[in-house]
Design a binder for these strands. Structure first.
Length: 268
DNA sequence: AGGTCGACCTGGCAGC
DNA sequence: TGCTGCCAGGTCGACC
């Protein structure tokens, strides 16, 4: 599912269309995706609400309502927020005052929609780490925070309480561009490597946003379209294919239960 | 506290 | 054609 660039793409598209719209009706076809309230209260609380702002934190999209409450959407692996006509597979959909529907689709049903009065009610938002595209994420901060961390650098990049928004695809891509082996202990990186890691994290994420994200499986943006960054992915999902730099086969290993793709020769 | 693992779900695909 | 096992972009709670 979507990582930071995909969620940011959805957020920017939605922002243009839904800000100022009023939710006329809410339909909950699958109560499982609404976690903290009954479907009835969820519908009752959101009906007639006007959306005044759309935001993103890590891989979550946040809708702020005029009354002051917030709808947080975590698409997880297969969640999609698609504007337009009603989609038959929608788990939840919102009828907007401009006549459009905002559909929440989610094949695997891992995703969740949460309604709160204060963002701090959500543990996910209380503990989430630094936004990698903000000024707070810089080489000095990274150096201090990485010291003494024994976990492999790839795991640390994916730790949402450390940096917000990097998932399995971009973690592999960032490390390939840096020439850093994903199994290295985070605390053992040299200062030049930390600077490179910072620089490549920012540039990979920005480039992916520019290309409207990656579509590896069923990611779709708010218009229901695929992203184009998939054509620029150099290692993720390319086990046994030739490394673009040295032509040797890309390796796949498993770290904390997740696949990691890298080039043994180019990443040390 | 830091770190790892299994559970949560559905569906596509490879192999038999 | 079926069946089985494996795999998938994330997060949480339980455990060491």
């Amino acid at each position: 599912m979507p990582e930071l660039p995909e969620v940011e793409t959805i957020k920017r598209d939605l922002e243009k269309t839904v800000v100022g719209q009023t939710i006329l009706e809410v339909y909950v076809h699958d109560t499982m995706v609404v976690r903290n309230l009954s479907a009835k209260r969820f519908k009752g609380s959101l009906a007639k609400q006007t959306i005044i702002r759309v935001d993103r934190r890590g891989k979550a999209i946040i809708f702020e309502m005029k009354s002051g409450c917030f709808l947080i959407v975590q698409p997880m692996m297969t969640g999609q927020l698609v504007l337009g006509l009603r989609t038959p597979q929608a788990r939840v959909y919102f009828k907007l005052s401009n006549g459009q529907y905002l559909n929440y689709n989610d094949q695997r049903r891992f995703g969740r929609l949460t309604l709160v009065d204060h963002l701090s009610e959500m543990k996910f938002l209380r503990t989430i780490g630094v936004e990698p595209l903000s000024g707070a994420f810089n080489p000095g901060w990274l150096k201090t925070q990485m010291r003494f961390r024994k976990t492999p650098i790839k795991n640390l990049l994916m730790n949402q309480n450390f940096i917000a928004g990097i998932g399995n695809i971009y973690a592999s891509e960032i490390l390939f561009r840096c020439g850093i082996n994903p199994q290295r202990a985070a605390g053992r990186l040299k200062i030049e490597e930390i600077k490179l890691l910072h620089e490549q994290t920012v540039s990979v994420l920005n480039e992916a946003i520019q290309f409207r994200g990656s579509s590896v499986n069923n990611y779709r943006d708010a218009k229901g379209e695929k992203g184009h960054f998939v054509n620029r992915i150099q290692v993720y999902g390319r086990e046994n294919e030739k490394c673009v730099r040295c032509q040797r086969p890309i390796q796949r290993i498993v770290q904390s239960g997740r696949s990691t793709f890298f080039c043994k020769r180019c990443q040390s």
